[in-house]
């Protein structure tokens, strides 16, 4: 292990322990690591976006390839900075308007297709096509579970009618399905966090303290 890597392992161990010290209570070591993280990661994002977005997508096409129209997004980007001064802050609404106009216009058909139509097709279409697929009993039951789950959960999200009577009962089924979904997400999150914890402990034991080396 070279000198810089050795120093790095010690720095990483110090920062890891500083963050873990928060388990006791908020303290200067934790605050130090937290603030260092803010500064370093802000710098890292600047570097990443400059070399991967600004340079290849705007500066190179404009100055190297002579595509003059790339001056437009650059000017719009610079106009964002007018927000820094009270008197000129309103000018930053222009680039924001461009950004939002594009983002919202693109989002409407794409989101409608990906998040609504495709999902509905995946839920209803499968059941509708089951007779063509020569599906077994298990597949039929599973597809019906999805259909009922999606339908009842959507009823739970439907607030234009009071959740009483049949609507109330269906929405109760919907809450149950949503709870299963939330539980699964929670289980996954816990396992992911525990994996990270194991990785950090392994780092401290084997890379820093060299246990078993």
């Amino acid at each position: 292990m070279d000198f810089m890597t050795s120093v790095g392992v010690w720095v990483a161990a110090f920062l890891t322990l500083s963050i873990f010290s928060f388990l006791y209570k908020d303290n200067p070591f934790y605050k130090f690591a937290e603030h260092l993280m803010v500064g370093v990661s802000a710098g890292y994002w600047v570097i990443l976006l400059f070399y991967n977005v600004l340079l290849p997508d705007a500066i190179d096409p404009l100055f190297t390839e002579g595509k003059w129209y790339y001056i437009i997004p650059l000017i719009l980007g610079l106009l964002m900075w007018t927000r820094l001064f009270k008197k000129t802050a309103w000018i930053s609404r222009y680039p924001l308007a461009f950004y939002l106009g594009i983002a919202t216009g693109v989002a409407i058909p794409l989101e409608m297709k990906a998040k609504v139509i495709e999902q509905l097709y995946g839920s209803v279409g499968l059941v509708a096509q089951m007779h063509e697929m020569d599906a077994g009993f298990g597949t039929v039951i599973n597809n019906v579970v999805i259909l009922i789950g999606v339908f009842s959960s959507l009823i739970y999200f439907f607030f234009s009618k009071e959740h009483t009577g049949i609507t109330g009962r269906v929405s109760q089924v919907g809450i149950g399905v949503l709870m299963i979904g939330f539980g699964a997400s929670f289980g996954f999150t816990v396992m992911a966090r525990v994996s990270l914890l194991i990785e950090r402990v392994q780092f401290l034991l084997f890379e820093w303290l060299k246990f078993g080396a």
């Binding site: 990661s41 890292y44 525990v194 990270l196 950090r200």
Partner: peptide, 16 residues
Amino acid sequence: DFIMRPITATMFSLLA
């Protein structure tokens, strides 16, 4: 490797 990654990973592992 030695500042960002350890801090981020440890912060998320705290959530455990």
